[in-house]
């Protein structure tokens, strides 16, 4: 499933400057609000679902080469976070939906977390 299809299906807002989302195909999903968990658990190309919106999420996503970050519950990153995301080429998406629902919808679309799937 390509990122543009996911953005459409979940009606996500794209917070960073539009790049061609149809060229991004997440390798799976990852959800956590704890940066240490993401650092140890998320795989390259994963779509990261979190409620966190502070600056450090951009650094983590860039470091791990994540496909994009979906910020849930309408949390708004500040200007510094947005600027840093642009610089690092990290795609920030946002939705008013809670994490649980976002994951559920992504799962329905076939996005999984291969690492923990038996």
């Amino acid at each position: 499933m390509r990122l543009d299809q996911i953005v459409n299906a979940l009606q996500l807002s794209v917070l960073t400057h539009p790049i061609d989302l149809s060229e991004v195909e997440p390798t799976g999903g990852y959800a956590s609000d704890l940066l240490s968990c993401v650092m140890s658990g998320a795989q390259r190309g994963n779509l990261w679902v979190t409620l966190q919106s502070h600056l450090n999420i951009v650094a983590v996503a860039a470091l791990l080469d994540l496909a994009a970050i979906i910020i849930t519950e309408g949390a708004q990153p500040d200007v510094a976070t947005l600027e840093k995301a642009e610089q690092e080429g990290v795609i920030l998406l946002s939705t008013p939906l809670p994490t649980y629902t976002v994951i559920g919808r992504l799962w329905e679309l076939g996005v999984r977390n291969p690492e923990t799937t038996p």
Partner: peptide
């Protein structure tokens, strides 16, 4: 559960367990 947050929530949602979080914006 051995599943991560993503798999665990996904599986429960799929099985019909609704979300019990009120969106803050509402």
């Amino acid at each position: 559960t051995r599943y991560g947050m993503f798999e665990a929530c996904g599986r429960l949602y799929q099985a019909g367990l609704p979300c019990l979080e009120r969106p803050v914006s509402s």
